[in-house]
Simulated assay, not measured.
Amino acid sequence: MQKTKVLLAEDDYDFGSILKQYLMIHNFDVIWAKDGKEAFALFSADEHQHENAFDICVFDVMMPQLDGFSLAEKVIEHNPEVPFIFLTAKKMKEDKIRGLKLGADDYIVKPFEADILVLRLQNILKRSKKTIISSKNEHEYTIGKYVFDTINYQLKFNGETQRITEKEAQLIQFFYDHKNQLIKREDVLENVWGNDDFFSGRSMDVFLSRLRKYFKKDPAIAIESTRGLGLTFKVITN
């Protein structure tokens, strides 16, 4: 069975060594970079070998050469679908918001037990492996004036194509399956994020803003929030 390949970027030698060993014990294939610049070089090299590409990334925020946020931005340019987690000693609200806006799948504040990281990685990978395709033969859906391609992660509108991330596609799929229904926030979080904790809730708010921006060209589509109740993905059809 092929191991999950992890890119770990951590400049603290002792901490990085412990994390690598612990992840390897739990059957992860770990490539450890000592700074952001080295991490991006490793990521870029592996992206050219698609069969050997990284499955998930773990980035320390404070690193020499290239900090974790800047590293994530460069990684997203190459592959917006790869999930990633930030590790940080900071508890600053601004840092968490910046990580969320980048699309981080999780954010772990040091110090933490190594088994917490293992569990977070396993949960993220479990969610990312869930197929968003309800039928093998049907992979494109018409949503108002848009065409949603679930295989290539694309939203098409009037000849223009918007590439989206896997998480965005999962959220659109869930909304499409429950369109014109009031959905509880916790139900969206449980089905798309796997839990309904504070971090996931803030992350969902960022993704909702993105989806509203993507669908704004069609006035017949709206994502409405009802305080204390939930969300409605409205699609008005003639």
Rank of each mutant, 00 (worst) to 15 (best):
D105A: 13
D105E: 13
D105H: 13
D106C: 04
D106H: 14
Y107N: 07
Y107D: 04
I108T: 06
I108S: 03
I108Q: 08
V109N: 01
V109Y: 01
V109E: 04
K110R: 15
K110C: 04
P111H: 12
P111R: 13
P111W: 11
P111G: 09
P111A: 11
P111S: 12
F112C: 06
E113F: 10
E113K: 15
E113D: 15
A114D: 07
A114H: 09
D115F: 14
D115C: 00
D115E: 14
I116M: 05
I116A: 01
I116Y: 06
L117N: 02
L117V: 02
L117K: 04
L117R: 04
L117I: 03
L119T: 10
L119K: 14
L119S: 12
L119F: 08
L119N: 13
L119I: 11
R120M: 03
R120Q: 11
R120E: 12
L121G: 11
Q122H: 12
Q122P: 01
Q122T: 15
N123Y: 11
N123H: 15
N123M: 14
N123E: 15
I124G: 05
I124V: 13
L125V: 12
R127L: 13
S128L: 02
S128V: 00
K129P: 00
K130D: 07
T131F: 04
T131R: 10
T131K: 13
T131I: 06
T131S: 15
T131Q: 09
I132G: 11
I132H: 05
I132Y: 05
I132K: 08
I132E: 01
I133N: 03
S134A: 14
S134N: 13
S135K: 13
S135F: 12
S135P: 01
S135M: 05
K136E: 09
K136V: 07
K136T: 09
E138N: 11
E138G: 00
H139E: 08
H139N: 12
H139D: 09
H139Q: 13
H139G: 04
E140F: 15
E140H: 15
E140D: 12
Y141R: 10
Y141D: 06
Y141C: 03
T142V: 11
T142P: 03
T142F: 08
I143T: 04
I143M: 05
I143D: 02
G144V: 11
G144A: 10
K145I: 00
Y146D: 04
Y146N: 02
V147E: 09
V147N: 07
V147R: 14
V147P: 00
V147D: 02
F148G: 04
T150H: 03
T150N: 06
I151N: 06
